[in-house]
C-alpha cells in the first residue's frame, strides 16, 4: 500500500486511503455507537419526555401532555415528598465534605506506597482491597454492625463542639465521622490513579532538586504536587461520579421505589432523577471550575510535561 502512494495521483490516493481509515475507525467503534445510540441517547430523550409528560401504561407507553403547567412533575416531587429536598441537600453536603477527605487521604497513601518501603506488595494488597469489596449490600451489613467507624477514636469531644451548629450542617459532619471507614474504603481506585501518576514523575527531577539543596518538604510542593495536579481534578470527578452512582445511595433507592409505586410512577421517578442529575452536574461543574488549572500556569505545566516526557 505504501508503494502505491508514490505515484502522480498522490493526493487522490491519500484521500482514498483516508476514507479507508475512516471506515476501519468506524468499524472498530461501531458496536459502541449502536449501543450508545439505543441505550444512552435515545433513553436520555425518552426519560426527558417522561419527566415532562404524564405516562400511561397500556400495552406500551402512551404519553399525555400535562394539565397543570409543564413542570408539574417536578413541582410534585418537591411538594409530595417532604423528605426529598432534605435528603438531596444532605447528599450534596455529604459529597462536598467527603471529597477532600477521600482525595487527600488517597494522595497520602499513594505517596507512602511510592516511597521506599518494605513489604510494598503486602501493603498494596491491603490498600486495593476496598476496590474489591466496597459495595452496597456489604457496606449495609457492615454499617448495621457499627463497623463503619473507627472504634478507638473518641468522637465525643469533637461532636460536642459541633452540636452547637444548625441541624443541616451538623448532620453531614456527624455522618462523615460515624462512617469514616466506609468513606476511606471509597478511595481504592483513587489511590491507584495517584500511584500511577507518581510513578511517572522522573527520578531525575528529584535528584536535580536534591543537588540544588531542596528539602523533602519543598520537593513535595514544587515537584510532586504539580505533577499530580491534573490527577487531582480527574480523581475528584471520578469520586463524585462513583459516589453519585453508587448502589448504597439513598436517592437512587428513592427513585427505584418511586418507579414501582402506583401513586408516583414513571413520570415522577424520572423528574426525580433529572433533579438529581442536575445536582450532580452542578457539583461536577463546581469541582471542575475550582480545580482546573489557570491558563497561564497551564502553559508552564505543559512545558514542564514536555520536558518530563523528554527525560
Amino acid at each position: 500500500m505504501s508503494k502505491k502512494q508514490r505515484n502522480p495521483h498522490d493526493k487522490r490516493r491519500l484521500t482514498k486511503r483516508m476514507v479507508r481509515e475512516w471506515g476501519w475507525g468506524y468499524l472498530f467503534v461501531a458496536p459502541w455507537i449502536v449501543g450508545v445510540s439505543i441505550f444512552f441517547l435515545r433513553s436520555m430523550v425518552q426519560s426527558l419526555q417522561f419527566a415532562f409528560n404524564r405516562v400511561e401504561l397500556s400495552n406500551g407507553v402512551i404519553l399525555h401532555p400535562l394539565e397543570n403547567g409543564i413542570f408539574e412533575n417536578f413541582v410534585k416531587v418537591f411538594t409530595t415528598d417532604v423528605n426529598f429536598p432534605m435528603i438531596l441537600a444532605n447528599f450534596g453536603i455529604g459529597l462536598v465534605l467527603q471529597l477532600p477527605v477521600i482525595i487527600s487521604f488517597s494522595l497520602i497513601i499513594a505517596l507512602l506506597l511510592n516511597s521506599k518501603i518494605r513489604c510494598r506488595g503486602l501493603f498494596r494488597l491491603i490498600f486495593f482491597l476496598p476496590v474489591i469489596i466496597a459495595t452496597g449490600p456489604v457496606m449495609n451489613q457492615l454499617s448495621a454492625q457499627g463497623v463503619s467507624s473507627v472504634p478507638m477514636v473518641s468522637q465525643n469531644a469533637l461532636l460536642g463542639v459541633l452540636q452547637g451548629l444548625p441541624e443541616f450542617i451538623y448532620e453531614p459532619i456527624n455522618n462523615l465521622f460515624s462512617s469514616l471507614i466506609m468513606i476511606l474504603w471509597n478511595s481504592g481506585i483513587q489511590i491507584l490513579i495517584f500511584l500511577a501518576g507518581l510513578q511517572k514523575v522522573p527520578r531525575a527531577m528529584y535528584e536535580a532538586a536534591k543537588i540544588d539543596g531542596a528539602s523533602a518538604w519543598e520537593t513535595f510542593w514544587k515537584i510532586t504536587l504539580p505533577s499530580v495536579k491534573s490527577l487531582i481534578l480527574l480523581n475528584s470527578i471520578y469520586t463524585v461520579v462513583t459516589l453519585a452512582t453508587g448502589g448504597s445511595n439513598e436517592i437512587i433507592e428513592l427513585i427505584y421505589t418511586a418507579t414501582y409505586t402506583a401513586t408516583q410512577g414513571y413520570s415522577y421517578a424520572m423528574a426525580m432523577s433529572w433533579i438529581y442529575t442536575a445536582v450532580v452536574a452542578v457539583i461536577l461543574i463546581i469541582v471542575f471550575l475550582l480545580l482546573k488549572e489557570k491558563s497561564d500556569r497551564k502553559v508552564v505545566y505543559e512545558q514542564k510535561r514536555v520536558v518530563m516526557k523528554g527525560v
Binding site: 481509515e21 475512516w22 476501519w24 475507525g25 468506524y26 468499524l27 472498530f28 467503534v29 455507537i33 450508545v36 441505550f39 444512552f40 441517547l41 433513553s43 436520555m44 426519560s47 417522561f50 470527578i237 461520579v241 453519585a244 452512582t245 437512587i252 427513585i255 418507579t259 414513571y266 421517578a269 424520572m270 432523577s273 433529572w274 438529581y276 442529575t277 450532580v280 452536574a281 461536577l284
Partner: peptide, 30 residues
C-alpha cells in the same frame, strides 16, 4: 478505534462518551 483512527465525527462521539461517563445511569435505567 478511538485511539488509533481518525474519522469524521470522532470529537462528537468522544464527547458523548464523556457525557455517558459523567451522567448518573439512573436516568437511562428506566
Amino acid at each position: 478505534g478511538f485511539a488509533r483512527y481518525n474519522f469524521p465525527g470522532k470529537k462528537i462521539w468522544m464527547g458523548v462518551l464523556i457525557l455517558a461517563f459523567l451522567l448518573p445511569s439512573q436516568t437511562t435505567a428506566l
